[in-house]
């Protein structure tokens, strides 16, 4: 194809997205669109499965059977969501194994919040409430994104996730209304998860490299800073309601803006964690790589068995 032909195709392509048409796997798409989508979607999928680890850490120690089944179901959903997203990404011509390879070698990123440790049961509440809360803010707009398989996966994810945040908030609420020891657990968890949750919505707009193009492709509908403000504005009253204190002395309602002003975020910490220096980066990767390697003989056995079965059927047919 000549450069001019490609240019023409691109113009048509952009016009389709402008008209809110969906792009489907076999449609022509600019190489950059494909690459950006592979990057963002696989990163999203990786976040789901690495995100299973900090919560999985408390399944065996959940304080009641009711909490245990809810947590187990939630972490399982995350595996399901990872699976939907990997499958959607595979329609762009990359295999799940290649994506794993990128994750395991550090070439692909995942949400850096999962590099923080879960130290007490209250962290299950904080993660559900804050981390899932922030995730939902990011994800709901993606149900309308331009790439069909991604949008469909996100619709399924959002529908299923509706119980996740409630699950977390309920845990928090119960603790906050419990004994003083329980309330301390809740406050401590909020203290530790608040700032990482704000960072989770991405770097400041002026430092975010992908935003403009992503907006055009409807991979993003609002800027990181807008999303962050939305998250803060919706979460602060929830904390008030259950009597917990947001660990930000500069947090203050701004009447004119109709929003909360908040203190500075430690971006240095954010970038350090992204680069691999968070408290649990190594453990998380070790667990993922370990499970994948450990499972290799199992996956090989299943393939070998399938091949033998196929031969068997073939022999019978002749």
């Amino acid at each position: 194809m000549s450069e001019e032909q490609i240019k023409n195709l691109e113009i048509q392509f952009n016009a389709r997205i402008e008209r809110d048409e969906k792009i489907e796997p076999k449609d022509w798409m600019p190489e950059k669109y494909r690459k950006t989508h592979i990057r963002q979607m696989s990163q999203h999928a990786h976040s789901e499965i690495v995100g299973m680890l900090p919560e999985g850490n408390w399944i065996s120690r959940a304080p009641s059977l009711r909490r245990k089944v809810a947590l187990l179901a939630k972490v399982q959903d995350e595996a399901g969501h990872g699976l939907y997203l990997y499958s959607a990404t595979e329609t762009l011509g990359i295999s799940r194994e290649e994506m794993y390879e990128q994750l395991h070698t550090g070439k692909a990123k995942y949400s850096s919040i999962f590099n923080y440790p879960t130290l007490t049961w209250a962290d299950m509440g904080a993660i559900g409430w804050l981390v899932d809360g922030a995730a939902i803010i990011n994800q709901v707009p993606l149900c309308n994104t331009s790439y069909g398989p991604y949008a469909r996966a996100m619709i399924r994810v959002c529908k299923e996730e509706s119980f996740h945040q409630r699950q977390g908030f309920e845990i928090m609420m119960k603790l906050a209304n419990g004994t003083s020891e329980q309330k301390d657990l809740a406050q401590d968890a909020l203290n530790r998860w608040w700032w990482p949750s704000l960072m989770m919505l991405g770097p400041k707009d002026e430092e975010s490299v992908h935003t403009e193009q992503s907006m055009k492709w409807k991979l993003k509908r609002k800027s990181n800073d807008d999303l962050r403000q939305q998250f803060i504005d919706q979460t602060v009253p929830q904390a008030d309601l259950i009597g917990l204190t947001i660990p930000d002395p500069e947090l203050k309602w701004n009447k004119e803006r109709g929003s909360y002003d908040f203190g500075p975020i430690n971006w240095d910490e954010f970038w350090q964690v992204v680069k691999g220096h968070g408290p649990c980066n190594k453990e998380r990767m070790k667990a993922r790589v370990g499970a994948w390697k450990e499972g290799e003989w199992v996956r090989d056995a299943a393939i070998a068995y399938a091949e033998k079965q196929a031969n068997k059927n073939f022999n019978k047919a002749v």
Binding site: G80, Y84, S87, E90, R152, R156, A302, Y305
Partner: peptide
């Protein structure tokens, strides 16, 4: 949607577990 499985039997079981929870 889609999923990975070694054979048809496993694909059915995985589909049951993944898509009809």
């Amino acid at each position: 949607g889609s999923l990975h499985a070694a054979d048809a039997e496993m694909a059915l079981e995985n589909a049951r577990d993944v898509y009809t929870r």
